[in-house]
Amino acid sequence: MPTATGARHGETSDPAAGAAISVSHLTKRFGERTAFENVSFEVAGGEVFGFLGPNGAGKTTTVRTLGTLIAPTSGSAVVAGVPLSPATGNEIRRLISIMPENPGLYLRLTVQENLELFAGLYGLHPAGPRIAHALEVVHLERRSRDLCRSLSKGLRQRVGLARALLSDPAIMFLDEPTSGLDPVAAREVHELIDGLRRRGVTVFLTTHRLEEAERLCDRVAILNTRLRIVGRPDELRTRLFSGALEVETALPLPTPEMVFNGEAGVQGWRSQGTASYVLSVADPRAAAPAVARALVAAGADVVSIAAARHSLEDVYLQLVDEDPEARR
């Protein structure tokens, strides 16, 4: 399995001429501890980019670094066209917005007052229409006078999103935006992110929810202190896994090795349950007819033959499980 960050990036990304984020060999250490190391990737403008990894992989620290809250130890980055440096922090912060995992609302203030504060901090004048629009996007127009402490977690998350939308940012960093939300609230957040994509906002999404990344992201990166891989979810599946056929018969085959071994296109096989088999094949479409013929010739009653599909979760687990960093 390839591990070189630069090579991965070169193989998989399709960086637009004007990348929204360009990261080169970025490293952050806190004393002896390395948060992330030698990370390189690019995010194209308007892309929804998923940033995955186990706890402690350095995802949040990466977001904080790109968001100018933390200075990198080494390496370089360009965010929204501005090189990352201590002198450009304010310029970058004007162009981006970050929604941390905890939306961090002032609970004693109303929704409107929370947004007024941030409109003031971004220098938005007049703030009223911007606040009204942000509330409309997250469907919270009727709750603007409610104290934030009275809102459910899902509603608070939506207020956090409205706050992040206020300044009409070029790039939005969303750190675990559906963490702790019920499925309905999570789906609403997904719809909002879809809406951001349609508006051409670049979204940098860190998440633990692999199905969320698979559904929402154009490309994903898997980080485990070092960047393990970057690419489109389907591309990663193809790259990491050879094709597979799932075969189910009415009764267990008495001699499956006689049926599968030596069959053209079948590279290996294993049992999966009593009358179910998984065949490793180079090309599932080409191999399926031959396998069907072999099964019929062996007198088996075929229930189904289907190409096995690997999820992004398989990719994630494969990479993280094989990573010695994760076992430490």
Partner: peptide
């Protein structure tokens, strides 16, 4: 195992994870 605790539980509940190569 090096994996987040939730991931391990999920793997166990699935009875292992098939990587397509046996």
């Amino acid at each position: 195992s090096g994996l987040p605790a939730g991931t391990v539980r999920r793997i166990q509940s699935l009875g292992g994870v098939d990587d397509g190569r046996g």
